[in-house]
Design a protein around this nucleic acid. Structure first.
Length: 189
DNA sequence: TATGAGATCAACT
DNA sequence: GTTGATCTCATAC
Protein backbone atom coordinates (compact mmCIF):
# COMPACT_ATOMS: atom_id res chain seq x y z
CA UNK A 1 0.00 0.00 0.00
CA UNK A 2 1.12 3.51 -0.74
CA UNK A 3 -1.35 5.57 1.30
CA UNK A 4 1.16 5.93 4.14
CA UNK A 5 3.76 7.09 1.64
CA UNK A 6 1.63 9.54 -0.35
CA UNK A 7 -0.78 10.84 2.27
CA UNK A 8 1.70 13.33 3.72
CA UNK A 9 2.96 16.79 2.88
CA UNK A 10 4.14 16.73 -0.71
CA UNK A 11 7.51 18.18 0.29
CA UNK A 12 8.02 15.09 2.50
CA UNK A 13 6.63 12.66 -0.05
CA UNK A 14 8.80 13.83 -2.94
CA UNK A 15 12.21 12.95 -1.39
CA UNK A 16 10.74 9.77 0.12
CA UNK A 17 9.79 8.55 -3.37
CA UNK A 18 13.44 8.48 -4.48
CA UNK A 19 14.49 4.83 -4.64
CA UNK A 20 11.01 3.34 -5.05
CA UNK A 21 10.43 1.18 -8.11
CA UNK A 22 7.69 2.26 -10.54
CA UNK A 23 6.32 -0.34 -12.95
CA UNK A 24 3.68 -0.17 -15.68
CA UNK A 25 2.75 -3.63 -16.96
CA UNK A 26 5.95 -4.87 -15.35
CA UNK A 27 8.11 -2.35 -17.21
CA UNK A 28 9.96 0.43 -15.38
CA UNK A 29 12.68 1.08 -12.85
CA UNK A 30 13.94 2.97 -9.82
CA UNK A 31 12.75 6.54 -9.32
CA UNK A 32 15.80 8.83 -9.30
CA UNK A 33 14.27 12.29 -9.91
CA UNK A 34 10.99 14.00 -8.96
CA UNK A 35 9.55 17.49 -8.47
CA UNK A 36 6.90 18.67 -6.00
CA UNK A 37 3.91 20.83 -6.96
CA UNK A 38 1.08 22.12 -4.80
CA UNK A 39 -1.90 24.44 -4.91
CA UNK A 40 -0.21 27.53 -3.46
CA UNK A 41 2.53 27.17 -6.10
CA UNK A 42 2.21 29.47 -9.15
CA UNK A 43 4.02 26.88 -11.29
CA UNK A 44 1.50 24.15 -10.48
CA UNK A 45 -1.44 23.18 -12.65
CA UNK A 46 -3.50 23.13 -9.45
CA UNK A 47 -2.75 26.79 -8.67
CA UNK A 48 -6.06 28.65 -8.42
CA UNK A 49 -8.18 25.60 -7.90
CA UNK A 50 -9.64 22.58 -9.62
CA UNK A 51 -10.83 22.89 -13.16
CA UNK A 52 -10.14 21.52 -16.60
CA UNK A 53 -7.47 18.89 -16.97
CA UNK A 54 -6.23 19.13 -13.38
CA UNK A 55 -9.27 17.60 -11.61
CA UNK A 56 -7.32 14.44 -10.86
CA UNK A 57 -4.84 16.47 -8.79
CA UNK A 58 -7.67 17.20 -6.38
CA UNK A 59 -8.67 13.55 -6.08
CA UNK A 60 -7.45 11.09 -3.44
CA UNK A 61 -3.74 10.40 -2.83
CA UNK A 62 -2.31 7.71 -5.09
CA UNK A 63 -4.19 9.04 -8.10
CA UNK A 64 -2.25 9.08 -11.35
CA UNK A 65 -2.35 12.47 -13.11
CA UNK A 66 -1.19 12.40 -16.74
CA UNK A 67 -1.19 15.52 -18.89
CA UNK A 68 0.14 16.49 -22.30
CA UNK A 69 3.14 18.79 -22.34
CA UNK A 70 4.01 21.11 -25.23
CA UNK A 71 1.50 19.22 -27.36
CA UNK A 72 3.94 16.35 -27.76
CA UNK A 73 4.81 14.56 -24.55
CA UNK A 74 2.94 12.97 -21.67
CA UNK A 75 3.97 13.67 -18.08
CA UNK A 76 3.21 11.42 -15.09
CA UNK A 77 2.35 12.66 -11.59
CA UNK A 78 1.27 11.02 -8.33
CA UNK A 79 -1.36 12.80 -6.22
CA UNK A 80 -0.30 13.40 -2.61
CA UNK A 81 -1.50 14.64 0.78
CA UNK A 82 -5.31 14.38 0.77
CA UNK A 83 -8.34 14.70 -1.48
CA UNK A 84 -8.95 18.33 -2.38
CA UNK A 85 -5.38 19.48 -1.67
CA UNK A 86 -4.15 19.75 -5.25
CA UNK A 87 -0.68 18.44 -4.43
CA UNK A 88 1.29 16.08 -6.65
CA UNK A 89 4.76 14.81 -7.46
CA UNK A 90 6.03 14.84 -11.05
CA UNK A 91 8.08 11.73 -11.86
CA UNK A 92 10.99 13.06 -13.93
CA UNK A 93 13.45 10.19 -14.30
CA UNK A 94 13.92 6.46 -13.69
CA UNK A 95 16.88 4.14 -13.69
CA UNK A 96 15.47 1.38 -15.93
CA UNK A 97 15.58 -2.06 -14.30
CA UNK A 98 12.57 -4.01 -15.58
CA UNK A 99 11.54 -4.74 -19.18
CA UNK A 100 14.58 -3.23 -20.84
CA UNK A 101 13.66 -4.84 -24.15
CA UNK A 102 10.24 -3.17 -24.20
CA UNK A 103 11.77 0.15 -23.19
CA UNK A 104 14.42 0.04 -25.91
CA UNK A 105 11.81 -0.90 -28.49
CA UNK A 106 9.59 2.08 -27.54
CA UNK A 107 12.48 4.55 -27.31
CA UNK A 108 14.66 3.23 -30.12
CA UNK A 109 18.30 2.30 -29.79
CA UNK A 110 19.77 4.90 -27.50
CA UNK A 111 22.28 5.48 -24.76
CA UNK A 112 21.03 3.56 -21.73
CA UNK A 113 21.04 6.65 -19.54
CA UNK A 114 18.73 8.50 -21.93
CA UNK A 115 15.97 5.87 -21.91
CA UNK A 116 14.00 7.40 -19.00
CA UNK A 117 15.91 10.59 -18.15
CA UNK A 118 13.12 13.15 -18.44
CA UNK A 119 9.36 13.25 -17.90
CA UNK A 120 8.46 12.87 -21.58
CA UNK A 121 11.02 10.14 -22.20
CA UNK A 122 9.87 8.23 -19.13
CA UNK A 123 6.24 8.09 -20.20
CA UNK A 124 7.21 7.01 -23.69
CA UNK A 125 9.44 4.27 -22.27
CA UNK A 126 6.67 2.94 -19.98
CA UNK A 127 3.84 3.33 -22.49
CA UNK A 128 1.99 5.87 -20.33
CA UNK A 129 -0.59 8.05 -22.13
CA UNK A 130 -3.65 10.13 -21.34
CA UNK A 131 -5.61 6.88 -21.03
CA UNK A 132 -3.92 6.38 -17.68
CA UNK A 133 -5.10 9.72 -16.29
CA UNK A 134 -7.22 9.24 -13.17
CA UNK A 135 -6.11 5.68 -12.45
CA UNK A 136 -4.53 4.59 -9.16
CA UNK A 137 -0.91 3.72 -8.45
CA UNK A 138 -1.90 0.65 -6.40
CA UNK A 139 -3.97 -0.88 -9.22
CA UNK A 140 -2.90 -2.53 -12.48
CA UNK A 141 -1.15 -1.81 -14.70
CA UNK A 142 0.70 0.28 -12.11
CA UNK A 143 2.93 -0.96 -9.30
CA UNK A 144 4.96 1.01 -6.77
CA UNK A 145 7.51 -1.10 -4.88
CA UNK A 146 9.32 0.03 -1.72
CA UNK A 147 13.11 0.21 -1.73
CA UNK A 148 15.23 -2.04 0.47
CA UNK A 149 16.95 1.04 1.86
CA UNK A 150 16.39 4.77 1.51
CA UNK A 151 18.74 6.31 -1.05
CA UNK A 152 20.66 9.48 -0.36
CA UNK A 153 18.67 12.44 -1.73
CA UNK A 154 19.84 15.86 -2.87
CA UNK A 155 17.70 18.89 -3.78
CA UNK A 156 17.86 21.47 -6.53
CA UNK A 157 15.66 24.04 -8.22
CA UNK A 158 13.01 22.79 -10.66
CA UNK A 159 13.44 22.63 -14.41
CA UNK A 160 11.66 24.13 -17.38
CA UNK A 161 9.33 26.50 -15.53
CA UNK A 162 9.08 30.27 -15.40
CA UNK A 163 7.00 30.86 -12.26
CA UNK A 164 8.41 30.23 -8.77
CA UNK A 165 11.43 28.93 -10.64
CA UNK A 166 13.78 29.22 -7.66
CA UNK A 167 11.90 26.85 -5.34
CA UNK A 168 14.26 23.98 -4.39
CA UNK A 169 11.55 21.40 -4.97
CA UNK A 170 13.42 19.02 -7.27
CA UNK A 171 14.73 15.89 -5.57
CA UNK A 172 17.35 13.53 -7.00
CA UNK A 173 19.13 10.33 -6.04
CA UNK A 174 22.65 11.43 -5.13
CA UNK A 175 25.16 10.57 -7.83
CA UNK A 176 22.71 8.88 -10.19
CA UNK A 177 23.69 8.87 -13.86
CA UNK A 178 20.05 8.54 -14.94
CA UNK A 179 18.69 11.98 -13.97
CA UNK A 180 17.57 14.49 -16.61
CA UNK A 181 20.09 17.04 -15.36
CA UNK A 182 22.59 16.72 -12.50
CA UNK A 183 22.03 18.62 -9.27
CA UNK A 184 23.88 21.82 -8.50
CA UNK A 185 24.08 22.60 -12.17
CA UNK A 186 25.22 26.17 -12.01
CA UNK A 187 23.71 28.75 -14.25
CA UNK A 188 26.17 31.18 -15.71
CA UNK A 189 25.64 34.76 -14.63
C1' DT B 1 29.38 22.96 -25.69
C1' DA B 2 25.61 25.86 -26.82
C1' DT B 3 21.78 27.95 -28.66
C1' DG B 4 17.52 27.52 -31.99
C1' DA B 5 13.63 25.64 -34.42
C1' DG B 6 10.03 22.43 -35.06
C1' DA B 7 6.62 19.28 -33.52
C1' DT B 8 1.53 20.04 -31.96
C1' DC B 9 -2.39 20.06 -27.96
C1' DA B 10 -5.20 22.04 -24.28
C1' DA B 11 -6.07 25.82 -21.40
C1' DC B 12 -6.49 30.47 -21.14
C1' DT B 13 -6.66 35.66 -22.76
C1' DG C 1 -3.46 33.87 -30.74
C1' DT C 2 -0.20 32.72 -26.95
C1' DT C 3 1.90 29.86 -23.61
C1' DG C 4 3.73 25.78 -21.48
C1' DA C 5 6.18 20.98 -15.48
C1' DT C 6 9.58 18.81 -23.30
C1' DC C 7 12.54 16.39 -26.59
C1' DT C 8 15.18 15.91 -30.75
C1' DC C 9 17.83 17.27 -34.44
C1' DA C 10 20.45 20.80 -36.80
C1' DT C 11 23.74 24.32 -37.10
C1' DA C 12 27.08 27.44 -35.02
C1' DC C 13 30.90 28.55 -32.20
Amino acid sequence: MTSELLGRDVLDVAPALIGWTLLVDGVGGTIVEVEAYREDDPASHSFDGSRGRNVVMFGPPGGVYVYRSYGIHWCLNLVCEAEGRGAAVLIRALEPTHGLDAIRERRGLLDERLLCSGPGRLTQALGVTGEHNGRHIDRPPFQLVAPAAQLEVVTDIRIGITKAAEQPWRFLAAGSRFVSKPANARRRF
